[in-house]
Design a protein around this nucleic acid. Structure first.
Lengths: 211, 211
DNA sequence: CCTAATATGGACCGAATGGTCCATATTAAT
DNA sequence: ATTAATATGGACCATTCGGTCCATATTAGG
């Protein structure tokens, strides 16, 4: 990150000092557009021009607000992780049981993926494949992301164990990473062109493997 | 593919007609270098210059022999699939049992990955993530690749069922895709920075899930 | 109204991109 | 020796890449 922190954390929103000309675009909305673009196309395949077109702002505004392409990408990763983990956590909190949460998660995932017009997978796992091996900064964010995902699954597993739906001799941490790994596997299989039947089959195996 | 087929299938090796100046480089060796480069870096992140440097040939030779970057990449994918499937098949044929083959495959994979200096994953799964969603030609090759992988696992599973190590009520096809999915999941987790302990744990869960 | 601060549009940049083309070199067959 | 066929080196190409810079526009506070 090369930008002064006060810009991309948007100190200007809290105001202070002397305000100047206001933005003509919605920061959140623009970031969202960028996130979806990276999500669909990946980092390298997304050009600055792509970003400008989809975020609908000028080059100056982009660089001033979000910094370089790489900076912007990291902010997108961050946003994605927050979005996903909060969504997952909420679903778990509202679920009738830990086991049910996990089951629904994977079966819903298959349904959603098959209905979607394009199989874009998970931004974090996509980035793990594309960037993590040679981009240390991104690598850290990726690791944080998978760890957060795993934490939610871990909660679900521990709850399921209390509820008697998963055997107590299973290690919740190991099992949680196993689930994250499987989510990422499903993602890849979907992208590799697996059909609904295959994906459903895999999801059922995952669920069965919980015991 | 825009190149005349007789070039990149190397009709010239079988000779015929009127031969002209011979190549100063080894085709297989050059293709191998390209494959490893794409494997490590991905398609977009690998430039023609990268390829020229690593394949050690001139631009003319590359374009004349392998066609465009995209053509070359497809040939690399092909080569990779052949290499991997024949290796897998051979391992299965020499394995003491179907179950043992699967177990060894995953445990060995973890050991190899942890010992390797860089986690480059599987070229096919990497490409599934990076290219398959928006590259139809590559998409087909990817699907072929995963299907071939699955076929080997399917053989192993059916053999394990005959040998009494896997329950007969399991569907070998579904289970085989489940294993491919898990391999790809492990790949992603490794790239996402999972440590040896986590990877070992996942591998054990995979093995346990076979019943 | 003036000034400090921020936003925007767009010209501009060097470097790198993938790709073409042609002159030259080297071979085998006639 | 000539010819047909192939290989090679490297000049050259238009385009795109990510990124910088500056003049201008717009705001809030004094």
């Amino acid at each position: 990150m090369s930008l002064p922190v006060d810009i991309w954390t948007e100190r200007s929103y809290i105001s202070v000092v002397n305000a100047g000309r206001p933005r003509e675009f919605d920061t959140e909305q623009a970031l969202d557009a960028a996130m979806h673009l990276f999500w669909r196309q990946g980092y390298e395949a997304t050009s600055m021009q792509d970003l400008l077109d989809n975020m609908q702002l000028s080059k100056s505004s982009l660089y001033q607000t979000f910094g370089s392409k790489h900076d912007l990408f990291q902010q997108c990763l961050d946003r994605y992780r927050q979005m996903m983990t909060s969504g997952l956590q909420q679903a778990l909190d509202n679920a009738p049981s830990g086991k049910q949460f996990i089951e629904d998660f994977f079966t819903d995932w298959v349904v959603d993926t098959c209905n979607a017009d394009m199989r874009i997978g998970c931004l974090i796992m996509n980035s793990a494949t594309e960037l993590a091996p040679h981009d240390e900064e991104v690598g850290k964010l990726i690791k944080q992301g998978t760890d957060r995902f795993a934490k939610v699954f871990q909660q679900a597993i521990e709850r399921a164990q209390r509820e008697g739906d998963i055997a107590n001799d299973k290690d919740p941490v190991t099992l949680s990473y196993f689930l994250v790994s499987n989510l990422s596997g499903l993602n890849a299989m979907a992208k590799a062109g697996a059909n609904r039947k295959v994906l459903k089959g895999i999801a059922q195996e995952i669920i069965q493997s919980l015991g």
